[in-house]
């Protein structure tokens, strides 16, 4: 890498240049090692989905499948379990929850940011306190409540308790604070009703700001494990995270490492695509939310 010294270079200048090169090289190799360590399990998952069962666990590790089995593991996974149904459930639940949380979150956030009404402070304190209480605390009483509604083991039970998000309200309020009052007032003078102003003026202004919020809400719903685990007893109501963990156990004595890696890859694919195409929003969202913790 280091070019040999140029004729007009002093000893000292050459030495600093060399030293800089070496320190860059050390930095690069350390970072490469760290990246390898952290990237390996994901690579292992993806490549194992296309390897023969015996090869997955064999040593030494083959970086590329020696015997490429194509979509064999994917097919056998779909044969053994209703993966398609689980995939649909996960997508459906996430779509409904993200849409509802964004819309009602925007509405409440707009209400908190742009209006002054009695009880506003205490209601906003309620929203903030929700974010401080972990879900596990609510698990038992929420399940008891859902049972009373007759919603256990149903889509309603899976979807409704996670329909709205306090975090979405909080973020939307932050975004809505920056909407100029003059804009809203001019619409009022033109005689628009408050609801129309929200739908046609506030909502479009909030939409672009909510990209990272939508990604975070999607991840929260897509990755949710505990709630669908306890609510859905019926196999056909399971979501991908719940289904795949049960599925990863050996099946009729047959090893199922390959299919379980195939399902893992399928479950990670939408998130990976989001990461690739919306990297900035993805990372931004992660940082403001802290859900991954």
């Amino acid at each position: 890498m280091a070019r040999s010294r140029t004729p007009y270079e002093s000893d000292a200048a050459f030495e600093t240049r060399l030293r800089k090169r070496i320190s860059k090289l050390i930095l690069f190799s350390t970072a490469a090692l760290v990246a390898l360590l952290f990237g390996f399990p994901m690579y292992f998952m993806a490549v194992s989905a296309f390897k023969a069962e015996a090869e997955i666990l064999s040593t030494p590790f083959n970086w590329l499948p020696q015997e490429f089995v194509g979509l064999y593991h994917f097919e056998s996974a779909f044969e053994r379990a209703p993966i398609g149904q689980w995939y649909f459930n996960s997508v459906f639940i996430a779509a409904v929850q993200v849409t509802a949380a964004i819309f009602f979150g925007a509405m409440a956030g707009y209400g908190f940011a742009k209006f002054h009404f009695r009880g506003k402070r205490i209601l906003f304190a309620l929203i903030l306190s929700i974010m401080a209480v972990p879900f596990q605390i609510l698990l038992i009483p929420l399940y008891v409540e859902i049972r009373q509604f007759g919603w256990h083991n149903s889509y309603a039970g899976l979807i409704v308790p996670g329909l709205l998000s306090a975090f979405a309200v909080f973020m939307m309020r932050q975004f809505a604070l920056s909407i100029p009052d003059e804009l809203l007032d001019s619409a009022r003078i033109d005689g628009a009703s408050e609801f129309r102003i929200f739908v046609y003026i506030a909502l479009p202004l909030l939409a672009p700001a909510s990209a990272s919020l939508a990604i975070i809400l999607f991840l929260g719903s897509w990755n949710n494990f505990l709630w669908p685990l306890v609510v859905a007893q019926d196999r056909n109501l399971w979501t991908l995270p719940v289904g795949m963990t049960v599925f990863s156990q050996p099946y009729r004595g047959e090893p199922s490492v390959g299919p379980s890696m195939a399902v893992s890859t399928l479950a990670t694919l939408p998130v990976a695509l989001l990461f690739v195409f919306f990297q900035r929003y993805f990372i931004e969202g992660m940082m403001v939310s802290g859900i991954k913790g």
Partner: peptide, 29 residues
Amino acid sequence: FPGREGLKLIFFSPLLPSVAVVSVIWVVL
């Protein structure tokens, strides 16, 4: 240092899988 952004992305890859996927991968590892 050169290659920093690419290596950082690889390092970020554990952000992608859900905790269920993480568990299943580690069971195999």
